[in-house]
Amino acid sequence: MKGFAFSRQQQGAALVIALLVLLMVSVLGLSAMRSSVFSAKVATGVQSDVMTFEAAETAIVSAYQQLVALSNEQLYAALDGQAAEYCMKANGVAQGTCASSDRMDVRGLLQAESYSYLDGFSAIPNSQVSTTGGAGIFVDYRINILGDSEMVSYNIENHHLQETLKRGIKPGAEIE
C-alpha cells in the first residue's frame, strides 16, 4: 500500500513539467516567428531600395543613349537653356515628363525619368579640326543628367546626378 500512495503523489508533477516544457517551446516558436517577420521586412526594404536605385541608373543610361545619338548641332540646340526630359516606360523611352500613371516596369511599381541639361562647354586649348568649310574648335559639352525614380507604394525615392562630357565642335565657333 505504501508504494501505491507514493505513485499517486507523482502523477501531478509530470503534468506540470509537460506544461512548462510546452510553454517554453511556444515562447521559442513565437520568438522565431517574430524574428523571421522582421527579417522579411528588412529584406523587402533593401530590395525596394535597390530597385529604385537601379531605376534611377537606368534613367541616366537611357538619357545618355538618347543624347549620344544627337549631332553636335542637335545637342546644342536641344539643351541650350532648357532641360531634355525622358520618361522610362515599360515599352521604352519617351521624350517628355512622366504622367502620374506611367511606370517603367510591368508590375507597375517604379516610375523613373531623367532630366538632362547643358551645364556649359569649354574650349580645349590648341584643339582644332579641319572641316569642309574651314576649321572649328573642339569643345567639351558638360551635360548633367539627373535620374529620378520613385516607388510610390513604399514611399521610396532615388535621385542620381551624373555629369558627362561629349566632345564636339561648338556651332558658330569658326576660326581662320
Rank of each mutant, 00 (worst) to 15 (best):
Y64N: 08
L75F: 04
A77K: 14
A63G: 14
M88V: 10
A83F: 08
G108R: 01
L67F: 00
A63W: 03
L70M: 14
E85H: 15
V106D: 14
R103F: 14
A63K: 01
Y115T: 05
A83I: 05
E73Y: 02
Q65D: 14
Y115W: 09
F121N: 06
G92C: 04
S71C: 03
L109W: 10
A90P: 00
A69L: 13
G92F: 01
D105V: 08
S114H: 06
D119A: 12
L79C: 13
Q74M: 02
A84V: 15
L75S: 04
D102R: 01
S116V: 01
A55M: 10
V93H: 12
E113R: 12
L110M: 12
Y117A: 02
G108N: 01
V68H: 04
D119W: 07
E113M: 08
D102C: 02
S101P: 00
A90D: 14
L118F: 12
S101W: 04
R103A: 12
A99H: 14
A59D: 02
L75V: 08
Y64P: 00
V61A: 06
A94F: 08
S114N: 07
S62G: 03
V68L: 12
D102A: 06
C87Y: 05
E113I: 00
Y117C: 01
L67S: 00
Y64F: 06
A84H: 09
V61D: 13
V61G: 00
M88P: 01
S122L: 04
S122Q: 09
I60F: 10
Q82S: 08
L110C: 06
L109K: 12
A78Q: 15
T97H: 01
Q82H: 04
A99V: 15
A83W: 05
E85C: 03
M104D: 05
F121E: 06
L70I: 05
Y86P: 04
R103G: 03
S62M: 04
D105Q: 11
A94P: 03
T97I: 03
S122F: 07
E113G: 05
V106L: 14
T97A: 14
A78G: 15
Q111V: 04
S114G: 08
I60L: 13
C87P: 06
A83C: 05
A69Q: 13
G120N: 02
Q111Y: 01
L70W: 09
Q74L: 01
T97M: 02
T58R: 12
D119T: 08
E85Y: 11
D80K: 14
V61L: 10
G108M: 03
V106H: 07
L79S: 13
A83Q: 15
